[in-house]
Design a protein around this nucleic acid. Sequence first.
DNA 1: GTAGGTGCAAACCTTTTGCAGCATG
DNA 2: CATGCTGCAAAAGGTTTGCACCTAC
Lengths: 150, 150
Amino acid sequence: MKPEQELSIVEAHLRKSGFRWTNQRALIVRTALSTHDHFTAEELLLLCRKVDPRVSRATVYRTLLVLEEAGFVEGLDTGDGGRKFEHVIGHKHHDHMVCGGCGSIFEFHDDELERRQEAAAKRIGFRIERHSLRIYGSCRDCQRRRGTAP
Amino acid sequence: MKPEQELSIVEAHLRKSGFRWTNQRALIVRTALSTHDHFTAEELLLLCRKVDPRVSRATVYRTLLVLEEAGFVEGLDTGDGGRKFEHVIGHKHHDHMVCGGCGSIFEFHDDELERRQEAAAKRIGFRIERHSLRIYGSCRDCQRRRGTAP
DNA sequence: GTAGGTGCAAACCTTTTGCAGCATG
DNA sequence: CATGCTGCAAAAGGTTTGCACCTAC
């Protein structure tokens, strides 16, 4: 899907939900969509400010909240009190492996993994809204790096 | 395993690692071991202060850090910027379902789930150190509560 | 005796909020 | 032109840190 097409989807959805489509929101959403990495709120703010330095931090946070509730963006805890976001338009659901050495994030997916979680939830009558699976460790490169340069 | 036995294990490990075994650490570790729930740093502090009101917040945080690095305690993000801890001595590894309605945490385990994760990691040469799987949603009681009292 | 640990308070970092003014529908 | 949104700055909430004093080894 093309970025402008994705942008239109978000715009249409937000308008339909009674939100206003302001210049700031357009800028923030466009910037978030153009970032294929995982980003922090602060990083998104800085990217937006390259285009318009007057964007405020509060607006970025408020917009991320709206986007998250609308399901266009997902946040994941970084474990140090902060969060990273990623947009999930046209993305299949996936889980994450986080390399402790270089901070890289690897995405993966396994249907059976999802089914098992659903089965476990069903056993205790738990209704799943979302889940977060993160695997921490070292990526191939970081293992090699430590192996050859101890 | 008996609590005092667990305490000795922690003491022995920390001493062997070059840490000192102070009254505060003993109190904090004993308190953490006696709590079978998930607790926040603040809750642990309050429990410790029932025994000795002079324990400082900083010492609780510093001790939790040591315990976490030693692998006796695991922290998990609560999703609202904070963390909850649990001691993992004599516990089998398990994952968590977090109820958004009442905050309850349900533990579950599935061997196949673990194997699938290992397989996914192996495919990209990732070495797993630990992982965190949290399922968010509503527990049986909260679903019923909403259903009967809309 | 000397690292290492402790308590206190202040600093930090990310996120949220109150409020006056602005812009969208 | 009314309501929702924005920017600012301050507050909030959880965690970390600097420093002088203390204590386990």
